[in-house]
Design a protein around this nucleic acid. Structure first.
Lengths: 205, 205
DNA sequence: ACCTGAACACCGTTCAAGT
DNA sequence: ACCTGAACACCGTTCAAGT
């Protein structure tokens, strides 16, 4: 995205971004368990002390990375919410996308929702999370507009919808759900079942 | 439970258990982030190499600890499932207990469901998880017996119920849900709402 | 059989010093 | 302004050696 590159002598113009990119790759490929800042620096081709010019500490780097993950999830959900007709169809599609996105990058998922990072001065993931809740709120309100849903506090219904698909996604990514569900076909069917149940639950009788 | 203790010269008869207990305390008090095996050994009053006589490595200790956590959750849910009348009341109570148990020990929760540990030869948490699923299966089947629930695969309904309360619990423990929900009163109300929605969803129309 | 102490390869973080 | 290299206090793990 930066564009200009005439000098041939390498070395980063934007080390901060290079570090985040390297970190994302390591997180995806190796997971969060052995994730080390020194590895990130190595992958970016700088000394192990260099990242400290751009992030206060390892937690700050992870927080920034987590923020990128939330943005990605938010974008995927927003797109899924925009592309269909009725609120019921939307809920089914959003559930499927939620589970898929979460399963595609388990390390990122654990980073985002595992609270490996905590607030500590920074706002933590609260704002990112509330932007995700907005997506569900939008779906619920659209459902109200066409008289589809039970007359309840929309924030409650939004949280019900989110909880349900989040729970399925977490059980899947945590491998606590039976091995057979790791098959994506099965997971898709399960996502549909779960979404339908939410719909049954929140629809007017 | 062991009973005899006449010799006054200390040093553990059962270091394995002492280590697990110390680890549990550290996990509860400090969380999983800075959790170190050397700290556990120190807390138990032995050298840092001593744990290796009882656990193959740090992951094995954590796996055993996680197993204890699953046992605790299983026992709490089983008790909640046994004490009430109709399946609807049971689901509400079980949801409340699930969320409470999870919130009472966030470090343990992250250990159990964060897949910090993976299988690696050992069976991982799959058996523990399936014993939890059994509890939900029992509730669903009891509901079938009195004609309360929709005619679906009981395993699906059980997973729907589990997913929903698990999702709420994870959002709560991950602090992604608004700060005001950290108040237990609010969380209790939320648990009830979520449980009611599951009931609406799985009940015969 | 169970535990210790030294040893090794790693980490996160800091800081003087270089360009 | 940005990066490096040495340094420090920690970790997980191994292994000879002690009782």
């Amino acid at each position: 995205m930066t564009g200009h590159s005439t000098t041939g002598h390498y070395h980063h113009g934007d080390l901060r971004n290079a570090l985040l990119q390297a970190a994302g790759k390591l997180l995806r490929e190796q997971g969060i368990v052995g994730f080390s800042l020194r590895d990130v620096a190595r992958a970016a081709g700088v000394s192990h002390a260099a990242p400290y010019r751009h992030f206060r500490d390892k937690a700050a780097l992870l927080r920034a990375l987590s923020g990128l993950g939330f943005e990605h999830l938010h974008a995927a959900l927003t797109e899924a919410a925009a592309s269909r007709r009725g609120p019921e169809q939307i809920l089914i599609e959003v559930t499927r996308v939620y589970v898929h996105t979460v399963m595609q990058n388990p390390g990122m998922t654990r980073l985002m929702f595992g609270t490996v990072i905590s607030a500590e001065g920074d706002a933590g993931n609260a704002p990112a999370a509330s932007s995700i809740l907005e997506v569900f709120l939008g779906i619920i309100k659209a459902g109200f507009a066409v008289g589809a849903f039970r007359d309840r506090d929309p924030r409650e219904l939004a949280l019900v919808a989110w909880s349900t698909m989040h729970g399925l996604a977490m059980l899947a990514v945590g491998e606590v759900v039976d091995a057979k569900y790791k098959d994506m076909k099965e997971l898709d069917a399960l996502a549909r079942t779960v979404a339908e149940n939410v719909i049954y639950g929140i629809s007017r009788s």
